[in-house]
């Protein structure tokens, strides 16, 4: 679909986003600079990666509230392997990705085979993953990671910070999977009409489980970035990330069977711009929580009402 068509169908969030950009640009001179854009993207790379996974689940008709906890647990695992078991870097990274994938597939199993509603299943997985993260090191931070790991969080390649490259990789991979492969077609079909897909003789539960697995895999990828950026693993670091990822997709207009990578990025930018602008204006962190929560829920109410009018 050409971009112009997409913009016409784009959710009202995009107009709010432009309004916000104009507002922050008029208040803070530093807002519209390349440096600020880069720092915004670097800070947002983790959210971008998580959202790519959540988008698959949303398009497949589910909700994933476990990505923050899965990211935390993968981060704890990677830090434990590197610092306590002194494992070389690449096997540790692979194991963390595998852990994320397994937890995601566990979600998929709960939802498809045990038939638990997805937001309850993933809330349960959230409890399990946070529980293990807290229990495995008695609630303490794991630090003392080898310095060879640090470039992944702070290094530059071709002038761009490596976390941004991770995010670009996630976006590209998700775009290819969603738009150019058979799997992507099935993901949209599950969200649109799961029964029809089953009647057509396809194992729709397998593809549905795979959307959750992909979200888990992306959480593992995000875990690498966040662990390398802080050079430590905190057992509560991902708390709240699932909320931002979930609302980014909802705000961008990613629903069962509709939306895509473009809409997801729109929602992510909405949150990143809001957070970055509030930071620049010096709003204290605890007030930011209230403001972001209120703006998001108002944004969703607003776009739901507009959407309904539009459809009538």
């Amino acid at each position: 679909m050409p971009l112009k068509e997409r913009l016409k169908q784009a959710p009202p969030a995009i107009w709010v986003l432009l309004l916000m950009i104009a507002f922050f640009a008029s208040r803070e001179a530093t807002f519209l600079t390349i440096g600020n854009l880069l720092s915004m993207l670097r800070q947002g790379s983790i959210l971008i990666i998580l959202c790519m996974g959540v988008a698959f689940v949303r398009i497949g008709g589910g909700i994933d509230l476990s990505v923050g906890a899965v990211m935390t647990l993968s981060g704890m695992i990677i830090a434990w392997l590197l610092a306590k078991a002194s494992m070389p870097m690449f096997p540790a990274i692979l194991l963390a990705l595998l852990a994320g994938l397994c937890l995601g597939m566990l979600n998929g199993f709960f939802v498809t085979k045990m038939r638990i509603p997805s937001f309850i299943a993933t809330l349960g997985t959230q409890g399990i993953a946070f529980g293990i993260s807290l229990g495995m090191n008695k609630g303490y931070v794991i630090s003392g990671l080898p310095s060879s790991f640090e470039p992944l969080g702070h290094g530059l390649v071709l002038g761009l910070p490596i976390p941004i490259w991770f995010a670009l990789f996630a976006i590209l991979l998700s775009f290819i999977l969603l738009n150019l492969t058979q799997f992507g077609v099935y993901v949209y079909a599950i969200g649109g009409n799961e029964d029809a897909l089953t009647l057509a003789g396809k194992p729709s539960w397998k593809y549905k489980a795979m959307t959750f697995g992909y979200a888990g895999f992306m959480s593992g990828l995000a875990a690498i970035v966040i662990t390398a950026r802080t050079m430590a693993a905190q057992p509560t670091v991902g708390s709240g990330m699932e909320f931002e990822a979930f609302f980014a997709t909802v705000l961008g207009g990613v629903f069962a069977g509709r939306g895509g990578i473009f809409e997801t990025m729109l929602g992510v930018l909405f949150i990143l711009v809001l957070r970055n602008g509030l930071n620049l204006m010096g709003v204290p962190t605890y007030l930011q929580l209230a403001i972001i929560g209120t703006v998001l829920i108002l944004g969703i109410i607003f776009s739901t009402i507009i959407d309904r009018r539009f459809r009538r």
Binding site: I116, I120, A121, G127, I128, G131
Partner: peptide, 26 residues
């Protein structure tokens, strides 16, 4: 048993409870 594991236990117990409910209903 350390209280740090309680969240893990609660998550598992909740999943089992919902699963029992759903499968009995089916």
């Amino acid at each position: 048993i350390s209280s740090l594991w309680q969240q893990l236990a609660l998550g598992i117990v909740m999943l089992l409870a919902v699963w029992l409910d759903v499968s009995l209903k089916r």
